[in-house]
Structure formats: structure tokens, C-alpha cells
Amino acid sequence: MIPPLEQVREMLSAGAAKSSLLVEREEAVAVAQFLKTDPQLQLDFCSCVTAVDYIKQDCIEVVYHLYSVALKHGPVALKVRAPRALEQCRMPSLTPVWRGCEYQEREAFDLYGVKFDGHPDLRRILMWDEFVDHPMRKDYVPPMDYEWEPTPHAETLARAKQTGGTVPASALEAKK
């Protein structure tokens, strides 16, 4: 649980140079709105959005680095955590608050599989649309060969079986 918003302001103004704030998923939008509009904080510039896969704690953490263009202070790191399992790995999008999150949240979705509820256009951005996995996750095993898209060659499949390598699920589905 996070403290009441008034306390957040005091915490941040006390050590604005190096602060981070871990909030619950349900409260993320309210906290973000507060940080952006509060006259003493005015964190109007969401500089950097990224995700980190903490596989030992079984969570994916999305980090927003906030600065204030109006008051020239920052950064405040706003952190939101979601479970690693793909079905539960979702959180509210902050794109309605800061437009600059749009592509960066798409990137976090593409590479980490975090689904952002309320994002206007949540599609893959760096990987191609047919790609199924999320390659920046710590347990991701790269396939042995991309050349046989869309269907794997028999030798590659046999080699994958021998060495324990993987083939992308999309390729196997196409073969069915």
C-alpha cells in the first residue's frame, strides 16, 4: 500500500533527486494523475518507460522515469509490478496521462508481454506481428534458426530435439 498522496508529495520534495515510488496496479493511474497535476511536483515529462523481469521475485516491474519541465526537477521513478504469468501480466496504461508512454508501453508489451489496459493501440512495435513470444524475458530461449519461417525444415526439428533447442510456437502451429 502506498501512503496518502499528501505524504507522497512530502517524500518527493524532501529528496526529489533520487526517489522511487512502488505503487499498486489499481492505484497507478490516480497516483500518476496526482504527480502530474500537483502544483508542487508538476511531473509533466514522462521521460523513460521500461520493464524489468525480476524472475526470482516472480514479477515484472514497469518503471516510469518522471521529470518536471516546468520546475526543472526529477527524476522520480514510478514503479508498478505485475505477476509474470502471461494471463495475469497486465496493468493500467499511463498513456492517457502522458502521451509519451505510447510507444514505450508498446515496446514493453512486445518485449516483456505486459498488457496495458486502456492503451489506445497495443500492438507489437519492434518484433514482427506474427511473432509469439516475448524475447526480453529472462526465461526466453531463442529458436535455433529463423530461416525456416513459416514452417521448420525436418533437419532443424530433428536437431532441435537432439540438442534441446526450441522452435517458435508460431512455426509449429503453422505445421499442424
Binding site: D44, F45, V69
Partner: peptide
């Protein structure tokens, strides 16, 4: 500002940052 634009592009729009 809202779209996190930085550098010369932002400054051309009057963001003094």
C-alpha cells in the same frame, strides 16, 4: 511536453529544456 519529445524538436516548439 506531454509526448516526451526532447532535444531540438522540443526546443523548436518553445520548450525551454
Amino acid at each position: 511536453i506531454n509526448a516526451s519529445v526532447s532535444g531540438p524538436v522540443a526546443r523548436a516548439s518553445g520548450v525551454e529544456y
